[in-house]
Amino acid sequence: MEFLAFLVRRVLWSLLVLVGLSIVIFAIARIVPGDPARMALGPTATAEQVADLRADLGLDRPIVEQYGRFIAGLARGDLGRSLLNERPVASDIRDTFAATFELVLFTIMLAFAFGVPLGVAAARWKDRWPDNLVRVFAIFCAVTPGFFLALLLQILAGYVLHILPTTGRLPPSMDFAADITGLVTIDGLLRGRLDVVLEGLRYLLLPSIALAAATMGQIARITRSSMIDVASQDYIEASRAFGVPERVRVFKYMLRPSFVPPLTIMGLEFASLIGNAFVVELVFAWPGMAAYGIRTILQKDLNAIMGVVMVSGVFFVLVNLLIDVLVGFVDPRVRIRGRRA
C-alpha cells in the first residue's frame, strides 16, 4: 500500500519534471541567436525563401502558440521535420535511439556485473591485496578517456588480434532488419535467429567495454565504500554475535543495505551515457543517437536538436523513475518515509 503511494508520488513528480523540461528546451531553442530558417537555408537564400520557411515552421506566430504546437506535436510523437533534408525527425531518432539504447543497456549491464562484485571483494578484503588491486584498477578505469580506450581496443582486438569486429552493429553480409524493438540482439531472439544474437553480441562487445570502463570503476568504488560503511554498523556485529555465517552476513546483510548508492550511480550513468556515447559511436561507426545528435548540432538543424534533447530528457526522467522504484524496493525506509535515507 505504502509502495503504491510512493509510486504515485514519483510518477507525478516525473511528469512535472517533463513539463519543465519541455519549457526549458523550447525557450532555449527560441533564445539562441540567429534565425533557424536563415541558418538552414544558408547565406545564398533570398529574403522571401527565408520568410516562407519561417511561416512554414510557424516561427512568425506568437510564442505561446508555438509552444502549444510544439507540445501538441510531442503528444503525437511528431518532432517536426529536419530543416536540412525534410525527413521527419521522429523517425530518424527512433532508428538511432534503438542503436544507442542497445549499446548503453549492454554497457550498463557490463559495468554493474563487474563493478559490484569488484567492490564487494575490495570491501571484504579491505586493505589487503584484492582491495589494493581493485582500487588501482577502478581508478585506472575511471580516468581513462573513453575515446582512448575505444581506439586502443579497436586496434588491439580488431586489427592486431583479429578477434572482434570493429565497426557497425552486424556484418554487412548478414541479412537482418531489427524491425520489432530496433535492438538487434532482442529482435534476433524474438525471431529465433540465434546467429544474429551471437553476431550482435560480438559487435557490441568492444564499444560497450570502452564505454563501460569508467562507469564500472565508479560503481566498484562506490560499492566498496558503501559496503565498508555498512560493515561497521551495529547490526552487522549483532548478526555475528548471533552466529550468522560470514557468507550470509556479506552477501545478504551487508550487500542489500549497500546497494542504494551503486543503483543511484547506475541510473545517472545510464541516462548520461545516452548523450555521452558519441565518441565511442563515432569510433565504432555505431549508428546511434549520440552521434546523430552531434551531427545535428554541427549542422544547426534546430528541430532535430530539440528532438534529440527532448528524447534524452524523457529517457533521463524515465530511468530515474525506474531507479527510484528499485531503490524503494531495496530499501523499505525509502518507500515508508517516501524519501531517500
Binding site: V244, V248, P332, R333
Partner: peptide, 18 residues
Amino acid sequence: SLNPVFTIADQMTTILKY
C-alpha cells in the same frame, strides 16, 4: 542493532536457521 532493510521475521528466522 537491527538491519533496516529486512523484516523482523526475516532476520529472526535467519538467526534460527543457522
